[in-house]
Amino acid sequence: MEIQDREFFVLLGPSGCGKTTALRLAAGLEEANEGGIYIGERRVNEVAAKDRDLAMVFQSYALYPHMSVYDNIAFGLRMRKHSKDEIDKLVRDAAATLGIDELLKRKPGQLSGGQRQRVALGRAIVRRPQAFLMDEPLSNLDSKMRVQMRAELVRLHRELGATFIYVTHDQVEAMTMGSRIAVLDAGRLQQVGSPQEVYDRPTNLFVASFIGSPAMNLLEAEPAQVAAQDNSKKAGARAGGVDVRLPAGLANQLKESGASSLMLGIRPEHLGLNVTEPAATFDGQVDLVESLGNEQHVTLSLQRASVIARLSTTERIEHGSSLQLSVAPEHVQLFNAATKERIGP
């Protein structure tokens, strides 16, 4: 895994996937049994945490409860041989950047969650490190505060021009903030790419199901000869009795892969009521309609499975009615069910 200079790099994965451990390894708080950790050209496996020129922001903020905000922010500077005036200037600059100059005399116990978060950030930025390591820094905030801090972190990243390595299990944070995302599961790197790449072309079933909300529909399928538009038989797939036509390129790659059992992936927003020249059409009964105001999530029961579609609220859909949902060929994704790897571009 390589992280570019000045990048906002997000480590994304479910809890227990090893993302925090990866961060702590980078920070020097854990020792690596094997493998190398490099900052620039320098191997830092044997370099102490304090000499790696990194700052870390912790999930619990890790503010010292017995010290004022000012002392919390100045704490790291006092070890680094700055003069008193210098420390004072740096602390006040950092506080101004984060809009907490009014709070410098308070103790952490007297601050709200958002304010504590800012102090924790202040403690990190005051040292002007090469890179910031952030371990789920927003997970203890309420949802409104989280949205606000998300925007602020992006702004901070732009202003500081430093590398951010950000750990989260929240895909919204990852998608909205990251310049690149690394998806981890069970201690293994699954995929690295821009948020759009990871969303559009997940490399395996884990990434496909982990990214996106509602999650991607995954249906069991197998390769089959299916009727094309002109009624000739072509290579395609069959999922739960439904024929799925594939674009020529994908059909060829399916053949090359030699996979015998497949998972068919369709994003909820790619299922529609009126799709011209659909790859497949699913008939079923509406099981659940969840309206979010601007869109509705419709769960459709098929014979052996169910799919979720994200539809506009202009369509009135009744619970229990029958419905046909179609998908365009270019939105069909295939995975080898045995290897769980993506088939196709």
Partner: peptide, 27 residues
């Protein structure tokens, strides 16, 4: 005492004795 407090002090360059004096004993 939350482990993260000590981790934070360690990142800031505080050794065992200083962590003890500045973080643990006051708490």
């Amino acid at each position: 005492i939350p482990r993260e407090l000590l981790d934070a002090a360690e990142m800031d360059g505080y050794g065992h004795i200083r962590k003890l004096m500045h973080v643990i004993l006051p708490l």
